[in-house]
């Protein structure tokens, strides 16, 4: 069981630092944003699983040969109130750390959800009083403000896209339509769920390179996905003009809630880079990543999830 915990620890370290750094520097995600998003999710899930798993298996070592036997041993121990031979302070410490980290991750996820939901509710209340429905598009509200702003407010069947009067004056009808398509893609593809999960991941482990890089990458990739969706109904120059005119305006939904203080990049720099990368991608279109390469990445993502799961369960099931 020792070897399993060491392998899990090694995997946790690799997924916490070198892998996300390499992925954040790679150029192919701009050519396959959806596949890249799946890979980031796999990295986060596998990373969390191996962190907790490594401490759990190591801590249970004196109680059983594998995770399942160890857990059975722990249950028997807790039921009998007998002192356990071999379960010394350092193993108890590892077990407590595993438990704490697990609880911390789940709790942060819920807390982040609560914060976002509360902020969104307040925003919606004010919006209902301050905005008026757009004349010719459904589920679209117009707010009286001179800055060019477009954003979406997710909320199930009550989801809306909000446009400012400043934006409507600045853009032609075709450009406005491309902005609407972009925002609706965010809503239809439920990007708010991804932003929530990665904001929570970031809030839970703010000092970890992986959580910072992942959040930034996910923010950028969903913008690219929404751009691609807008391109299905608008021509490229129209979207480029719209993006350039609104650049620096939009801030990813939910990012205001619970943003931690220390950052690799300041939020302004990160946001500007995202706008620049989006424009670069639209100005010089690159061919989508080949089918074989995408399958390879997806297989890699599946493998990332399979390895810690197998390391945790296989020794117990096989023995």
């Amino acid at each position: 069981m020792f070897w399993a915990s060491y392998l899990l620890a090694a995997l946790a370290v690799i997924l916490a630092w070198p892998v996300p750094v390499m992925l954040s520097r790679a150029r192919w995600p701009a050519r396959a944003p959806k596949t890249a998003l799946i890979l980031w999710q796999a990295i986060a899930l596998a990373g969390g699983l191996s962190m907790i798993g490594a401490m759990l298996t190591w801590g249970l070592e004196p109680l059983g040969d594998n995770l399942l036997a160890g857990l059975r041993g722990l249950a028997a121990l807790l039921a009998s109130y007998q002192p356990a031979p071999g379960l010394d302070l350092i193993h108890v410490f590892a077990l407590s750390a595993a438990l704490l980290l697990g609880v911390h991750l789940v709790f942060t996820l819920l807390l982040t959800y609560y914060r976002i939901a509360k902020q969104r509710h307040r925003h919606r209340t004010l919006l209902n009083l301050l905005s008026s429905p757009a004349k010719d598009s459904p589920k679209t509200l117009v707010i009286n403000h001179p800055a060019p702003v477009a954003y979406c407010l997710p909320g199930g069947s009550g989801s809306v896209t909000v446009l400012s009067e400043g934006l409507m004056e600045l853009l032609t009808p075709a450009e406005l339509q491309s902005v609407l398509q972009h925002e609706r893609a965010h809503l239809n593809q439920r990007h708010d769920l991804l932003l929530w999960a990665f904001a929570a991941w970031r809030a839970a482990l703010p000092w970890l390179p992986t959580s910072q890089l992942a959040q930034r990458a996910v923010n950028e990739l969903i913008e690219m996905l929404a751009d691609d969706a807008a391109l299905e109904t608008t021509d490229r120059p129209t979207l480029i003009r719209a993006v350039a005119l609104v650049a620096g305006g939009e801030r990813p939904a939910g990012s205001a809630a619970g943003a931690p203080a220390r950052e690799l990049l300041s939020p302004e720099e990160a946001q500007a880079l995202t706008s620049a990368n989006r424009l670069r991608r639209l100005l010089t279109p690159m061919a989508p990543l080949g089918r074989a390469a995408q399958s390879l990445v997806l297989a890699g993502a599946a493998l990332l999830l399979a390895v810690p799961t197998v390391l945790l369960l296989a020794p117990g099931l096989a023995g």
Binding site: Q119, H123, L126, L127, L130, I143, H145, A147, V149, Y151, V162, S164, A247, G248, G249, E250, R251, A256, S266, P267, E268, E269, Q271, A272, L273, S275
Partner: peptide
């Protein structure tokens, strides 16, 4: 409301400059 979406005016200038 706009502050929640955009950040402050100074943030916006920083974004544009960057």
């Amino acid at each position: 409301l706009m502050h929640e979406v955009l950040g402050s005016a100074r943030d916006r200038e920083a974004v544009l400059a960057a």
